[in-house]
Amino acid sequence: MQILTRSLVACSALLLASPGAFAQKAGDTILGLGVAVIAPRESLGPVTSTGPAAPAFNAATAGATASIDPVATVSLSVLHMFTDHVAAELTLGVPPRLDVDVQLRSGNHPRAVSVKELTPALVAKYLFYTPGDTVRPYLGLGVTHASFRDVKINPSDPLVGRLAGTSVSLSSSWAPVYNAGLIYNINERLSINASVSYIPLKTNATFVGTGTTSTTRLKLNPVDYVVRLGYKF
């Protein structure tokens, strides 16, 4: 009996010490907290202006391009395992501020527009290997609804002020999320989730200025790099 007891204790200790012991099995819910780096792959469509001042603005903005630097933000997630391999993950981050630099033939316009981007996403995932493995790669496919808040222009730029001095708006939109990553199980409760996502995201920008209303199509197409520490309940 004493030998059996010792054996059970030893087995239990071994399971608890095993990095992948019963990780990501059916019914588990994992909360994640980490950092996301958002790297837009932006492009700007033709700027079309209407109104009394439209000819001057159309000439000034012909061939305009845009650039947006990568930004980092806090990322939160809830991952639920429906089976040992199929899961769904809801992600939400602190809205990062994107600074849009505009380049024209007449010169550069840094931080012409800045905006906070909110992109909650729901992604279905398929996890490979088994719940007992230390490393579990996965593929995911989902959807996000992007909305834009607190849109600002650079008031010190004369052209930007004339082009968008009255108001600026960016339309909300739905976009697919293509996701791949892996989970490294530290122990039964803790894990590290690293992933990369591509989101073909587009928005319509409308600028109302002095004597003109201008519209353009802005493609953000971000690649998101995310690392989170997960805790399983």
Rank of each mutant, 00 (worst) to 15 (best):
39 A>Q: 09
189 R>L: 14
125 K>Y: 11
215 T>N: 09
150 D>H: 14
229 L>V: 10
201 L>E: 05
118 L>C: 14
94 V>R: 00
34 G>C: 13
23 A>F: 07
168 V>Y: 00
121 A>Y: 01
92 L>W: 06
10 A>Q: 12
90 L>V: 00
72 A>G: 11
66 A>P: 07
210 T>D: 11
225 Y>H: 04
203 T>F: 07
205 A>W: 01
205 A>T: 05
199 I>R: 05
222 P>C: 11
156 S>P: 00
156 S>R: 11
42 E>M: 10
211 G>R: 02
62 A>F: 13
110 P>D: 14
97 R>Q: 15
128 F>Q: 09
11 C>I: 15
223 V>M: 00
87 A>W: 01
72 A>Q: 09
1 M>K: 11
106 S>Y: 13
127 L>P: 02
72 A>E: 08
73 T>H: 04
44 L>I: 03
3 I>G: 06
215 T>P: 00
22 F>R: 08
191 S>E: 06
101 D>F: 05
82 F>K: 02
46 P>I: 11
122 L>F: 08
168 V>F: 00
108 N>T: 04
139 L>N: 03
220 L>R: 00
24 Q>R: 00
92 L>C: 03
53 A>T: 14
158 P>V: 09
21 A>E: 11
17 A>G: 14
224 D>Y: 11
106 S>D: 10
156 S>E: 12
39 A>M: 14
141 L>F: 13
102 V>Y: 07
129 Y>E: 15
221 N>D: 15
62 A>P: 04
157 D>E: 09
123 V>W: 01
91 T>G: 10
222 P>A: 04
193 N>H: 06
52 P>I: 15
24 Q>P: 00
233 F>Q: 10
41 R>T: 15
152 K>N: 14
90 L>S: 01
13 A>Y: 02
67 S>H: 10
148 F>Q: 03
127 L>A: 09
142 G>D: 01
129 Y>K: 12
167 S>N: 11
180 A>S: 05
32 G>C: 10
150 D>C: 03
122 L>N: 07
98 L>V: 07
138 Y>T: 06
69 D>Y: 03
56 A>M: 15
147 S>K: 09
163 L>S: 03
215 T>W: 01
35 V>W: 06
3 I>T: 11
175 A>W: 04
142 G>K: 01
120 P>G: 04
99 D>A: 15
181 G>Y: 14
54 A>Y: 03
218 L>F: 13
219 K>P: 05
10 A>G: 02
2 Q>I: 10
48 T>F: 10
205 A>I: 08
17 A>P: 04
180 A>I: 06
59 A>E: 03
228 R>T: 12
185 N>L: 14
199 I>P: 02
207 F>G: 02
184 Y>P: 08
78 V>L: 00
133 D>M: 10
171 S>D: 13
172 S>T: 06
133 D>R: 08
